[in-house]
Design a protein around this nucleic acid. Structure first.
Lengths: 349, 349
DNA sequence: GTTTAGCACTTAACCCTAAAGAGTGCTAAA
DNA sequence: TTTAGCACTCTTTAGGGTTAAGTGCTAAAC
């Protein structure tokens, strides 16, 4: 357990380092502290903190830098719950205040707002209802060998895909297949639908048409689009600024990570523990070395019966945690309000 | 006019420099040349080339580097029309050989292939038919306040967008609006449709519903999606490697350019002059300083009655032009073949 | 009239050293 | 327990010397 003074010193080190990026030395720190002590005293305390692995030196005679554990301690115990500034709150409310046609627009726009406010990279996932089910699949012929396939889920999501019938494919047979699909699969959770797609469905389709491939590709495509946990990313380019590396290789792996949906959504989901805002620092995010110098701040937002969604911000470990956490927290509340309003306006009565 | 020997020397300088990235000096060059001369002679010839602004020094005692004009001269006069290797050709044919459901899939995949082959960034536009017209607009109700709007053009493109009816919007009124739209606008080129959308259409819509905004946004959205010259980009991340800059600012402006559709499609269109492959170097691409160290190679591909499309590769000015141009040229031919095949398979009889 | 050997000159890149600056740990006194 | 003082460590910066690669020019050779 640290003494009160050690807490204050660690806090000051983190604040100083996150704002300047330079290792902090005992002399400068002594001047900044809210109580009057000499640099020698600060040095003694620093030695304690270093033995506790909360801070580290870059070389034997350099100033101190917070370690991963130091940031962790800071976030857990020393963060003063800094409320978001009025100004920021107004920005959030204004940006969310405009009118939107679709829920996806709100969520996608949210990623942009959040990345702008923080100047890091932001992620948003829309409210997720457990166990989404297929509520209908249809085919609308558009003439001239074109049809559009439309899938609707019971959560109200719609996916569609236009395609052109190969000359050897018969529209009537196709409609029969669609009837069969609706017969067999409506009401099932999308996950089961996916399973059946690799199971008995191909055989059934073969009753109606020569080769099932073309149709199955199409259907599979639409189903997995609907089943995918779709998230939005804002401020990708900010990564170039805050990543602190000029190595194209490292940047490429980071950007590839951003494009690699499964992995990323896995990382975001892992932050769903508990209420409120979750902070993961460096290696806490994942085993992957490339994330060592980043922190991921995730939070859920709760839209009552409509489910919970996730927002997240990826920044450097060296970030102003108070501010960022404050922003994320304010944002999750405002977004929840906005979405409730949206649902009220468009659904039920 | 340059002598034969000067041509050879310039050619060798460009070859050497594009492959090593190092300024080339007289001594090394003398050894590489296909005829036997001393380094002093080479120096004399280099002085001539420098006076002609075809090559330049980085500092007073450095080797020579081709200037923009030097590359230009090289591309125009000294390029030996290097055929693509068998290996590359096989790669192209295999990648294009797989089966595709939609033309967009082919075009989008093409951008990836081309960027992989060149290890630069590639762009592809689908064959463009002049004067695309609106051939139908419909609304399919999906129940539960959802509808999907579908727009079809006479070129066979389909755009759709799902949306949720606000509670104060009446489906019958909406259908009446759709009838009116079809009545008024079917058969018109999309450009005229866009014009009418800002002209008399809003008034007409107001006959049927209180506020036209919601519907007009939707319709406008779908029409402009269909009217947009949609292109695909492959190998965005390659830019990190070949751009030669570690300055995040410069990289950001480049990436922003890639996302800025209008500007980019303008640049690509500008390469449509004449048959075959067009090479623009540095400032020839645009006035914008950020493009100074890049070259843009564009080419059209011709799918007979189905129109012409564009493919392009963006790389550093310092690129192996023979190879890249060869690849782009081979690719445009293979892609044209493949698309003709695709159309034959899906359309007409 | 070209071509070439020779040479003086220029510049970047590298390595070394010295000095300055920032910071540390330790000791002994307050 | 705190602090002044001091020796020590390490990084950063500037300067100087050397090397390597290259140039332009001149005068001789072809």
């Amino acid at each position: 357990m640290l003494t009160q003074r050690q807490n204050k010193i660690l806090q000051a080190i983190v604040r100083q380092y996150t704002s300047t990026g330079q290792p902090v030395g005992s002399k400068h720190l002594a001047e900044e502290l809210p109580f009057k002590v000499s640099s020698a005293t600060v040095r003694n305390e620093m030695a304690v903190l270093e033995r506790a692995h909360l801070i580290a030196k870059e070389h034997s005679s350099s100033g101190r830098v917070p370690s991963k554990e130091g940031y962790r301690y800071y976030v857990d115990h020393l963060l003063d719950p800094q409320a978001v500034t009025d100004n920021d709150l107004v920005v959030i409310q204004n940006s969310l205040g405009t009118s939107f046609q679709k829920i996806d627009e709100i969520i996608s726009h949210s990623a942009d707002i959040l990345s702008n406010l923080t100047s890091y990279t932001a992620f948003t996932l829309k409210p997720e209802q457990a166990d989404v089910r297929l509520s209908g699949f249809r085919l609308v012929p558009l003439g001239n060998h074109k049809v559009i396939a439309i899938l609707v889920t019971d959560s109200g999501d719609v996916e569609s895909q236009a395609f052109t019938l190969p000359r050897n494919l018969d529209l009537d047979a196709l409609q029969a297949v669609i009837r069969m699909i609706n017969d067999q699969l409506v009401g099932l959770p999308l996950t089961s639908v996916m399973k059946r797609l690799n199971d008995d469905i191909p055989l059934r389709v073969m009753h109606y048409m020569h080769s099932a491939d073309g149709f199955l590709d199409l259907f599979d495509n639409v189903v997995s689009k609907a089943a995918r946990e779709q998230f939005f990313i804002g401020g990708r380019l900010n990564l170039l600024d805050f990543s602190n590396t000029r190595d194209p290789q490292a940047l490429q792996t980071m950007y590839r990570l951003l494009d690699h949906n499964d992995e990323l959504s896995h990382l975001l989901d892992a932050g769903k523990t508990g209420e409120g805002v979750n902070v993961r620092i460096g290696s806490e995010i994942s085993k992957d070395k490339v994330l060592d110098n980043y922190s991921l701040i995730t939070a859920t937002y709760d839209v009552d019966q409509y489910g919970k969604g996730i927002i997240a911000v990826l920044g450097p470990t060296r970030m102003p945690y108070s501010r960022t956490i404050g922003l994320v927290n304010a944002f999750r509340q405002e977004l929840a309000k906005r979405l409730l309003d949206f649902y009220w306006h468009y659904y039920d009565s």
